[in-house]
Amino acid sequence: MASPILFFGLLAFVFLAALASDPNPLQDFCVADTNSQVLLNGLACKDPNTVEASDFSSSGLHIAGNTSNPAGLSVTPIVAAQIPGLNTLGISLFRFDYAPWGINPPHTHPRATEILTVLEGSLEVGFVTSNPPNRLITKVLHKGDVFVFPIGLIHYQRNVGKKSATAISAANSQNPGVIPIASAVFGSKPDIPNGVLAKAFQVDNAIVNYIRSKF
């Protein structure tokens, strides 16, 4: 049963509240007003007198996501867009579903450290340290195992089992951000010049164009 593991995953999520990297709130809460036109570093606050319990809750995290895509991955976020009451609290939660051999491709979170708990299946996970020495730190996780990805470092997950896998992760930011390495480099708008990528990856322009066509 995944329930005990889900409990400990949520416990880790709550623990992160004490270590939030986002600025500390200056009031009890700042429920996001998604209709506000005010531009600021975060989301504008709703009138506290109109706040309801539904602003602090969400449902459906037990439902598996659709993994019928090239990566074999589904991500279900719980951020301020799903729970407006998370605004300014410096935490967020994500459910990951992986098809057999599905991957969460190499990416970074520029604003958050991530802690991941495996609920079902087996995942190969890893992150790369900064340069030098660009060391890959990797491990195969099984049900109940937990792994931390430090802020800003490139990391990935891969399902190494023949069955679907599920994990839940928490981040110490209400908006961790995500930079998928391959699509950011080869799918940017406008394009990074071919000459830059060809020299960076030490390949010719034809290979750059082929990879770019995938994104």
Rank of each mutant, 00 (worst) to 15 (best):
G60H: 00
A53G: 04
T34A: 14
E52T: 15
D28K: 12
L26E: 15
A64Q: 08
A53T: 12
P23S: 02
Q37M: 11
L26V: 10
L39Q: 15
D33F: 06
P48K: 09
F29N: 14
C45A: 11
N41L: 12
A32R: 06
G42I: 01
D55A: 05
E52M: 13
S36L: 04
P48W: 08
L43S: 14
Q27V: 09
V31Y: 02
P25N: 01
C45H: 09
C45G: 12
Q27G: 13
L26Y: 05
Q27E: 15
P25W: 05
L26T: 15
G42Y: 04
F56V: 06
F56R: 09
S59F: 02
Q27F: 05
T50M: 09
N35P: 01
S58F: 00
N24V: 04
V51D: 10
D47R: 08
A53E: 10
L40D: 05
E52K: 15
A64R: 07
D47L: 05
G60M: 06
F29A: 15
S57P: 03
F56N: 06
D28S: 11
L40S: 10
N49M: 11
N24M: 05
V51R: 11
S58C: 10
F56A: 08
D55F: 05
F56M: 06
P23A: 03
T34L: 15
N41R: 13
V31T: 10
Q37F: 07
N49L: 12
N35W: 02
L26C: 10
H62Y: 05
T34Y: 07
N35H: 09
V31F: 01
Q37S: 15
V31W: 03
A44Q: 12
P23D: 01
N24Q: 13
D28N: 11
F56W: 08
T34W: 10
D47K: 03
S58W: 00
L26K: 15
V51G: 10
L43E: 11
N24S: 13
S54T: 14
F56P: 10
L43D: 09
E52N: 12
Q27A: 15
P48I: 07
